[in-house]
Design a protein around this nucleic acid. Sequence first.
DNA 1: CTGAGCACCTGAGGGC
DNA 2: TGCCCTCAGGTGCTCA
Length: 272
Amino acid sequence: MPELPEVETVARALAPVLTGRTIVRVELFSPAVRTPLSPLKTALPGRTIRQLFRRARYLIAPLDNGTALVVHLGMTGVIRVEYSSVPRRKHEHVFLHLDNGSVFRFEDVRRFGGLEVHPIGQGGLPARFAAFGPEPLSGDFSAEYLYEHSRCRKTAVKTFLMDNAVVAGIGNIYAAEILFAAGIDPRREAGTLTSEQCRNLVKCARRILREAIRQGGTTISDFKHVDGSEGKFAVRLQVYGKSGEPCPVCGTKLQCVRLGGRSSVFCPRCQR
DNA sequence: CTGAGCACCTGAGGGC
DNA sequence: TGCCCTCAGGTGCTCA
């Protein structure tokens, strides 16, 4: 489900609600999601959440003892903060009971998500994040950066954009939308991009991701805001999920190919 | 090192 | 109605 704009939306909603709260009790309803949940039982009770922010598609909540709670929503993860009197939903796996009586509730149908506690290392982040590329909305993600890092890369440009080590947090929806906006064929070898195309890609990525955040992300089927509402960017999608429909610019039938195992919709006329 | 393929898991939707 | 197949916002492993 969630790419950068969706996780950013969740982070912005959660930060004011969770900052300063102390976790008093951990209730587990499944032994594991992507990874085992039992470590939370010893790592979290008594800990106070210092802040909450997003990096790539992860939510990171530094705690008061030099560790951080790291949450990933996988494909179908939903976080709500409500009260335990609301009946537990079928796929809610974890409740974190907070000191004001509210409950952080984690739901994940497919269980590709995860909740883990890691020590905070260099740069205020757990060690694993050192391998991630720049945030696409930061200045570090520049045309020059993209050009240099794509040299000699033979992989399809779409797969390249979806690589967290290149740039963090761009997934299947936004990669398709960004490449359509930039007029670049998703099958194109990354190493053949010109510097001008890299400039255009960076510009389109920034514009589309910012607009998606403004709209509260994209709800296809599972994604929900912390308050249960839905993201409004779906109506703005130009090509994702529209294989066989006419291109919104030129009317040519949109095509779908598999790249890196993911469906990739594009306009064979507008994207070269 | 790179790149491709597959596994993880549940549910929805289409074809028969 | 039911069965079987394919597909879905991600990540991380193995293999060549």
